[in-house]
């Protein structure tokens, strides 16, 4: 039996759960509460020292990192492939899987932290010391508050991401091709938050958000797409 450790409000968790539902896969899902910093409990850090959800346990193996997990699920489980219908579509799937990690998620986390007035509660502060140093440093930066330049650069990156989504969606209904793929699953839970953070989507992106959101796999998670003040992947340190 597979076990998925996830968190409501975590876009990376939602992306994996959409794939599970699209492929009709059963799974023992264990929820963590990010607002209470349960991802820094020793039991979870034993699974993923970075303290990040989601984590998949299967056959004694522990897999982290949402997009590689999504590819793993697609490759190991029967049913229609979600990795793209041909090699060009599959390139686009990988391209978007990477772009989410490098350009969307880290910047979304910063914009969201500022918009929601994110704070590390007193009780959680000592827990941050359990993280590896780079991850701890990112949280310490968040705790001090990101400076205006950092927030502005992150907001500009989200606008750029919205432009790129619009460009790909101008040519087709789904991000990678003529059907729903892992690219749509990976990007949707992040992009659905843009509007609440003041980055209203353009027409093609809004239509695509509706299209993905109406799929039963995404609709079932409707109550879990709320923005939460938590850190994402580390922002790029060198262009």
């Amino acid at each position: 039996m597979m076990r998925l450790h996830y968190a409501p409000g975590s876009a990376h968790s939602a992306a994996v759960r959409i794939v599970l539902a699209e492929k009709g896969m059963a799974c023992d899902a264990r929820a963590l509460d990010l607002a209470r910093f349960e991802q820094l409990d020793p039991a979870f850090l034993a699974l993923n020292p970075e303290g990040m959800v989601p984590v998949l346990e299967q056959d004694g193996r522990v897999l982290a990192e949402s997009f590689p997990i999504m590819l793993f699920l697609d490759e190991t489980h029967p049913g229609p492939s979600l990795a793209g219908a041909d090699s060009r579509e599959r390139y686009r799937v990988h391209k978007w899987g990477k772009y989410v990690e490098t350009h969307i998620a880290p910047n979304l986390a910063i914009v969201r932290w500022r918009a929601l007035g994110g704070q590390v509660p007193e009780a959680a502060r000592a827990r941050l010391d359990r993280l590896p140093r780079p991850r701890r440093d990112l949280w310490r930066r968040a705790e001090r508050g990101f400076d205006a330049d950092t927030v502005a650069a992150a907001a500009a990156a989200l606008d750029k991401a919205a432009e790129r989504l619009a460009a790909d969606l101008a040519e087709r209904d789904w991000l990678a091709g003529e059907a729903f793929t892992l690219a749509d699953a990976a990007v949707f839970p992040h992009a659905i938050q843009f509007e609440a953070l003041g980055h209203a989507p353009s027409e093609p992106v809004a239509r695509w958000l509706t299209r993905v959101g109406e799929r039963p796999a995404a609709a079932a998670l409707d109550k879990e797409f709320f923005p939460i003040a938590t850190m994402g992947p580390e922002p790029a340190r060198w262009g």
Binding site: R61, L63, A64, E65, F67, P68, I69, L71, F72, E75, T76, K98, E101, T102, P134, P233, E234, A236
Partner: peptide, 18 residues
């Protein structure tokens, strides 16, 4: 092996991003 592929992709991410 899909697990090895996962491992390959996680290492490539670590390399590319960090």
């Amino acid at each position: 092996d899909p697990f090895r592929r996962w491992q390959m992709r996680v290492l490539m991410r670590f390399m590319d991003n960090i």
